[in-house]
Simulated scan of single mutants.
Amino acid sequence: MYRRQRHLYDASRKFYLLGRDRVIADLAVPPGGAVLEIGCGTGRNLVRIARTYPEAACHGLDVSAAMLETAARSVARARLAPRIRLARGDATAFDPQALFGRATFDRIVISYALSMIPPWERVLAEAAGHLAPGGELHVVDFGGQAGLPWPVRALLNRWLAAFSVTPRAHLPEAVAGVAGAAGAHARVNQRFRGYCVHAVIAR
């Protein structure tokens, strides 16, 4: 899918992947902390994270070799290659020690990736398992859209389906369940009338 789309991805997605920059601003990465983005795509978010938190060590994971190729170019253009490491892996089961040389992260970000991964709840659980003590998992993705008028919801979902995107209406409940199983705390904010959800799991 992304062999062609990756070239237009950032220019087009900025109009409807809402809340990404708010999540980055809320990360509050501790000095010298490590950040992992799961489903890092073109590297857009990683570059912004690295610039926002200049002391952070940033890592990106994606299953798409094409997207990682584009991400590597974006990172190189931003002259951030020494601070951003990229690796190919399956978000439902990956070994960060083997991929990045570290087992846990202070902050993990999943931005509009769960809506494209069928076993998305497994991704949540896998990510939470790689949080360092005091770490936080930040998720932003399409929500249940309960506050949007029905015609808007119908049009939006038809558009998203064309790109194999499925909003996760039960994301808040899944986040609460994963947090409970991990002995962590969860907080969830519905934004833009439920258009998107920003959820945090904190250890």
Rank of each mutant, 00 (worst) to 15 (best):
I201C: 01
I108G: 02
S64T: 09
M1Q: 11
R191K: 13
L27Q: 02
R193L: 11
E55S: 15
T92G: 03
M116V: 15
I108F: 02
R107T: 03
P96I: 05
G89S: 12
Q190M: 05
R13S: 15
R3W: 07
P151K: 10
A56N: 08
W159Q: 12
V197D: 00
A103S: 15
F142P: 02
F100M: 07
R102F: 04
G144H: 10
G19D: 01
G129Q: 04
G39K: 09
P54A: 13
I38E: 05
R203I: 02
M1E: 13
I24V: 15
G143T: 01
F142Q: 05
T42V: 12
A179Y: 06
K14E: 13
V200M: 01
V188R: 00
L137C: 03
E69P: 00
E136Y: 00
A202E: 13
D10I: 07
A182Q: 12
A78K: 08
P54D: 11
R83N: 06
P31Y: 02
P31V: 06
F192Y: 09
A176N: 14
R187A: 13
A125E: 14
C40A: 14
P133H: 09
R88P: 01
E69L: 04
V109E: 00
A78S: 09
A93L: 08
C196H: 15
G39Q: 09
A56L: 10
Y16F: 15
G43Q: 11
L156N: 14
A11V: 14
L46R: 06
L156K: 04
G43R: 12
R13L: 07
A181V: 02
V188G: 00
A65C: 05
L8R: 14
R77T: 07
N45R: 06
Q97V: 07
G129F: 03
W159S: 11
A66F: 10
R122N: 10
V140M: 04
F100W: 06
A154L: 15
R85W: 03
P172I: 08
A28D: 09
R73F: 10
Y16G: 04
C40R: 08
F100T: 05
A128Q: 14
T70S: 14
P54E: 12
L155G: 06
P118S: 11
A81Y: 03
A72D: 14
A87L: 11
A103P: 11
P96W: 03
Y2F: 15
A50D: 08
A78W: 06
L36E: 03
A50T: 07
I84F: 07
Y2W: 14
A103K: 12
R4F: 10
L171D: 02
L137Y: 01
V140W: 03
D141Q: 05
Y2P: 08
V175K: 01
A66M: 01
W120Q: 09
A132Y: 03
S164F: 11
G147D: 07
E173G: 09
A57I: 01
A162D: 10
H7Q: 12
R77A: 15
G143C: 00
R77L: 12
E55F: 02
D10P: 05
L86F: 10
V152D: 02
A81R: 15
